Simulated scan of single mutants.
Amino acid sequence: MINISPFEATTQYKSIADEIEKNVCAVMASGRYIMGPQVKEFEIQFAQYLNCEQVISCNSGTDALHLALRALKIGAGDEVITTPFTFIATTEAIGIVGATPVFVDVELDSYNIDTQLIESKITERTKAIIPVHLYGRPCNMTAIMEIARKYNLKVIEDCAQATGATWEGKKVGTIGDVGCFSFFPTKNLGCFGDGGAIATSNAEIAARAEYLRRHGGKVKYHHEELGLNSRLDTLQAAVLLVKLPYLDQWNAARKAITDFYLEALSTTTGIVLPQKLHQGNSVWNQFTVRVLGGKRDIIQKSLQAKGIGSMVYYPIPLHLQEVHADLNYVEGSLPVSEQLSHEVLSIPLFPELESSAQQVVVESVKEVMADIYCLQ
């Protein structure tokens, strides 16, 4: 039976297994399992890749957001504007530092924060904007930075799904004050567990983030602030050092698969395909379509019956999550995000997805859509 998963990690590993195992074994033989030299080397190389001054690694993308907010001294009583159509980590970090998330709806065609709605949500308590480059597609950073400068706000880019994406020639994560990255295994640059990093060209932000990730102390056993234990594991750094040089190649493969999907599915009834960018460059962490007519769930089940896996990112927007009930958003308050939560479906996309498998995915989608929409 056909079985094509939305994401598959072992093929990529096999293609670089010798390099991975060499680096990992070197770490194990060294005995330097915490903050070994591979961690600093990865930070240097990733900063060079992004073309920013400094990268501070940590143990997850969630902690990267947390550290960024702490480094910018955002906390209790402050408001942070962000999108409701993303993973909980974005607002989790805001809440953990004591600040309040303020949601701005997204654009229907880009899935990203609607920059035309941001100014209406700014108050005297607003301290920052966290745009999320969802599915690998960069937000309109030109508009966001103009607003940030106008109101003296900080910008923290959530780049968890967009490592390598660009906007007007700059890598995402280097346009705002801080960029936050995740190296979760399903990301474009993924390690073999949890991992994350912040990127910045501000020396003060980098210094604060660096000591906050080590229990809030600049000198061992001397602690100026309550910090975190959020160091990137040396083994994960060793893996990332091998993978980083392949990132652009893998992102190009994602784009090639996307181009095939866009062409092959262009006339398929019942779905709306993601739009190509006129500015910037997406790295296509996901290929996410909109399924019309309230038939997303049955389409997903029908694809699964054919052996085609898919995922829904995200079925409940953050403003309607129980954890944010105290913010008093009601159903209908952010209609585009709510609409997308009922329509989006991500089909298989990873660099190693072979042409024959891509063809099977396309044929299966067409067959299912034709059957469900009674076009045969």
Rank of each mutant, 00 (worst) to 15 (best):
I34W: 05
E8N: 15
V323L: 14
D105S: 08
G190R: 08
L134E: 04
K295E: 11
T186M: 13
Q236C: 11
K243E: 07
A370I: 01
G61F: 00
G136S: 07
Q54R: 15
D194M: 15
H223N: 08
H66I: 03
G270I: 02
Y111T: 10
A17T: 02
G173K: 06
V27N: 08
V55T: 12
P101I: 11
L303M: 01
I147K: 07
I372R: 11
N328L: 13
A128I: 08
Y151K: 13
K276D: 09
A26C: 11
Y373A: 01
T288V: 12
G164W: 01
V361S: 09
A207G: 07
I16A: 05
M369V: 07
T83E: 00
L241F: 09
Q358Y: 00
P315I: 03
G77T: 08
R214A: 15
Q54L: 09
L303P: 06
H342E: 10
I316G: 08
Y221I: 05
F85T: 09
Q275T: 04
S201H: 03
A26F: 04
V272H: 10
A325T: 05
D78S: 07
M311G: 03
G190T: 13
T115L: 06
I56A: 07
I156C: 02
K366V: 15
H133W: 02
V80C: 04
F260I: 00
E354N: 14
L67D: 10
R149W: 10
L153T: 06
A209M: 00
T62I: 09
E224D: 14
E354F: 07
S182M: 02
N112H: 07
A89L: 12
A26T: 02
V172C: 11
E43F: 13
V323D: 13
P245F: 05
G61M: 03
E92L: 13
R290S: 14
V336N: 13
V368S: 02
T258F: 00
T86Q: 10
V55P: 11
I144C: 06
A47C: 02
Y261S: 00
A17D: 11
Y329M: 15
S60W: 05
L226P: 06
A305Y: 06
K220N: 09
L240T: 12
S266G: 07
L232P: 10
I88K: 09
Y33N: 07
Y329H: 10
V97A: 00
T83Y: 05
N152S: 15
L69Q: 00
D63I: 14
L235Y: 13
S110W: 05
A162M: 01
Y111G: 06
Y313P: 03
T269D: 10
L262P: 04
E204K: 11
P351E: 03
N51Q: 13
L117A: 08
F184K: 11
F87D: 11
V102P: 05
R231F: 12
K127Q: 15
A162W: 04
P351N: 04
N59W: 06
L244M: 04
L303H: 09
H278P: 12
A148W: 07
T91D: 11
P351S: 08
V330Q: 14
Y313V: 08
T186V: 15
V365H: 01
P37L: 01
S266V: 05
G173Y: 09
V289Y: 01
A264Y: 01
E8W: 12
T288R: 02
R231T: 14
